[in-house]
Structure formats: C-alpha cells, structure tokens
Amino acid sequence: MIPMLLSGLAAIGFIAFSAMFLIWLERKISAWIQNRMGPMMTGFHGTLQPIADTIKLLLKEDIVPKGVDFLSWWLAPFFVTVPVVMAFLVIPFSPKWIALDLNVGVVYICSVTSLCVLGIFMAGWGSNNKYSLLGGMRSAAQIISYEVPLLLSVLLVVMEAGTLSMQGIIHAQSHGWFILKPHLTLAFLIYFISATAEVNRVPFDIPEAESELVAGYHTEYSGMKFAMFFVAEYTNMFIISAIATTLFLGGWQGPWLPGVVWFLLKSYGVIVLLMWMRWTLPRVRMDQMMSFAWKVLTPIALLNILISGWFMVK
C-alpha cells in the first residue's frame, strides 16, 4: 500500500517538474531557432520563469463563460490529466524503477493515452464556443485516425520481442536496439509520425491552430484549468517519447551511466526532436492530414506487418 502511494506521488511530482522544464525548454529552443534570446529575466537564463508562471496561473481568476455545458466543462480537465498520470504506471525508468511491470504494459499505455480524446472533445463541446467545438472535432478525428498506424507499428515491435511487458521489450533489445533493424526502422518512422499527430504537435497541430482557431479546444479555459491542459499536453509528449525509447531505442540500456540517466537522456532527446520539428515545419491541411493517415501510413504499416511476419514465421 505505502510503496504504491509513494510511487504515485513520485509520478505526480515528476509530471509537474517535467512539464515546467519542458515549457522552459520549448521557449528556449524556439528562441534559439528564431535567433532570439527567450526568457532571460527570472533566474539564470530564465530558469525560474516556469515557477513564476505556475504561481501566476495558481492566482488567476477561474472564468466560467456563459452557457457552458456544466458537466463536460468541469470534467474535461480531469479527463485529460488523469490518463496522463495513469500512463506512468508502466514506464520503465530503470531495471527497478517501474511502478508495476504489467504483463500487458504496451497495450495498457496505448489504451490509457487514448482516453485523452474524450477529455478534449468534452472541453470542445462544453465551452459553448465555435472555435473550441471545431478544435475538439478536429482533434478527435485526428487522434482516432492516427491511432490505427500507431498501434500497427507498436504491434510489429511486440511481434519482434514476443512480449507485451515494457521491461520484457527492453530486455529483448540487449543485443541491439530495435530501431537498427530495417523493418523496425520503418515502424519507428510510422510510430513517430503518428505519435506527433496524437499529441497535436506541428505539423499536425490543426486542432489548436492559432491562426484559425484561437487556441482550439481550450480557448475558453483560464487559470488552473488551462494549466491542467497545458501540463497534460507536455506530459503526453514525454509519454510518447518514453514509449519510443522503450520500444525502439533500447530503453534504459547503455554503457557507463545508470539506467535512469540513459532513459531520461533518450526520452528528452526525442522531445527535442519534436520541438525542433515544431519550429521548423509548416502546418498541414486537415484533408491532407486525414488522407495521409488512411491512404499512406496505414497501408504501409499493414504491408510492413505482413512482410515481416512472413519472414518471422519462415
């Protein structure tokens, strides 16, 4: 009982600090790419800026617009944040640092992260605002579509490793990372593209496209409720990077340094790649994005499974 509670508290603490760090990192990377300085005033190179932002968000007034759908409006931030915390149950930080090594870990983390779409839709509908509703609709369509190639690429890793447990998959990579095998390199590319769409990042950020939808589904949220959406967004980014690290990049395996350090290094490396993409690429159109998922990614993922499965059985 007590160790379970402690690991839960550790997960929540990690989520809060990781989100604060990632927001700072994103501002710094965007500034660096655009030849600016970014936050510089609070602390050394703006390191205390996230703490100042958090205090500001905690003190802000919680504005409830007229005519909101009360149930969806109040529950939406929880529906977005709770799955994010639940996902940390099976993230293997090191050989010993895992809250619970479920024997269906991979399926668990995929199913739990798919819950976010409900919260996003509730926020979009509950806000009683056409921009929010459009953002929510787009997001739901996008997440459902990209979940198909994402799960198919994860399936290939499961076929290769022969287990659904997160630790088991890392152990299966002790003789070489999965990304180095050609069919799994393709699977990694499919996973990476789909995961970028799942967390609504550029080039797939049309659910919250600033230039057309203000801020998408969380336009009407303010104060701590907005902060919950923000934390969930950045933690989701960490989760998909952690999954990529576990499934393709050998997890906590690596020489000299302890496992936790390797795991965090790899995960944050993937996150930096995501941020780099955000500040480099333009946004795609809705129809382009949907047809890309159904007409390009899904067939390639299916073919990949078929061909690699043929060789595995043979």
């Binding site: 399926v107 199913s111 739990v112 819950l115 409900l118 839709f121």
Partner: peptide, 13 residues
C-alpha cells in the same frame, strides 16, 4: 485494458 481501448477509446468516441 482491452475494455478501455475498445469501448472507451474507440466506440464511445
């Protein structure tokens, strides 16, 4: 897990 993945993540959406 399958209950959540199929029913909540898929069908309810």
């Amino acid at each position: 897990v399958v209950q959540i993945l199929v029913y909540v993540g898929g069908i309810i959406t």
